[in-house]
């Protein structure tokens, strides 16, 4: 067990540093902060709302992440497969799941860094008024969990291809479907022909529904289980697929 943990931490360290070895990290952070800022201040009218909360910021997170997290996740495995380093990685005396977990945690930690850099907004809100900090903390928790789920899906999809562009687009489509599953747009299209339980099942998979409740300050056990189980599911499938590619 300790050997597995140390191998997770070695993979984690290597992957986390790899983000900063290339301009990727800087570009990602700048794009994320610029987009989040632009959406919050110009599109949502942060000041015009006149209320000290961060709802204007959190509303945009599902939509930003659905573009940005596939961009972080796409290189995790596709890059290894393209350059052939996956062969080397797989001959290491470590279990595939430790590599999968290490890579995922590195990407998730990187997303955490990006989110941490939005704290000036939180400081601004506290300086301008007296916001409900419990709700803001819940919002950050929800955003971080959602980021983890999207990243796990993106990483899982990137094992299927050597092409990072294909990995990116496929992951973006899957996360888009997960986000919109609860919207009337999708449910209306299904309701016409599918039985009731199927419509309910699709609605239950909606990221947006869970996300909206947690960002309004209501932390529910089903929400935590939903995001947690989505991460575990994606990582398990990821391990299976890596195992399969290893066998080929």
């Amino acid at each position: 067990m300790t050997a597995s943990l140390s191998s997770v931490s070695v993979v984690f360290g290597r992957e986390f540093r790899a983000y900063f070895a290339t301009p990727l990290a800087a570009i990602f952070l700048v794009v994320f902060l610029a987009l989040a800022g632009a959406m919050t201040f110009f599109v949502s009218g942060f000041f015009a709302r006149g209320s000290a909360d961060m709802a204007a910021f959190f509303t945009w997170m599902p939509w930003l992440f659905l573009v940005l997290l596939p961009a972080i996740g796409m290189r995790l495995w596709a890059e290894e497969r393209r350059s052939g380093t996956i062969e080397l990685l797989m001959t290491m005396p470590v279990a595939p799941w430790t590599i999968v977990l290490g890579k995922f945690l590195a990407g998730w930690a990187f997303t955490g860094v990006a989110l941490a850099l939005t704290t000036p907004l939180w400081i601004t809100v506290n300086w301008l008024g007296s916001p409900d900090n419990g709700v803001i903390a819940a919002g950050y928790l929800g955003t971080f969990l959602m980021a983890g789920a999207f990243l796990a899906i993106a990483a899982c999809i990137s094992t299927l291809t050597k092409n990072q562009v294909i990995a990116f687009i496929s992951a973006a489509i899957v996360t888009f479907l997960l986000v919109t599953a609860g919207l009337e747009l999708v449910l209306g299209a299904i309701r016409g022909w599918a039985p009731y339980w199927m419509t309910e099942a699709v609605a239950a998979l909606s990221v947006l529904e869970h996300f909206q409740r947690i960002t309004q300050g209501l932390i529910e056990a089903p929400t935590l289980i939903f995001f947690g189980s989505l991460i575990v599911l994606a990582l398990m499938i990821n391990t299976f697929l890596v195992d399969l590619k290893k066998a080929q």
Binding site: D132, N133, G134, V135, A137, A138, Q216, G217, L218, I219, E220, A221, P222
Partner: peptide
């Protein structure tokens, strides 16, 4: 099973 973290 829920926690209400809002001030009000």
């Amino acid at each position: 099973w829920r926690a209400d973290v809002t001030e009000t």
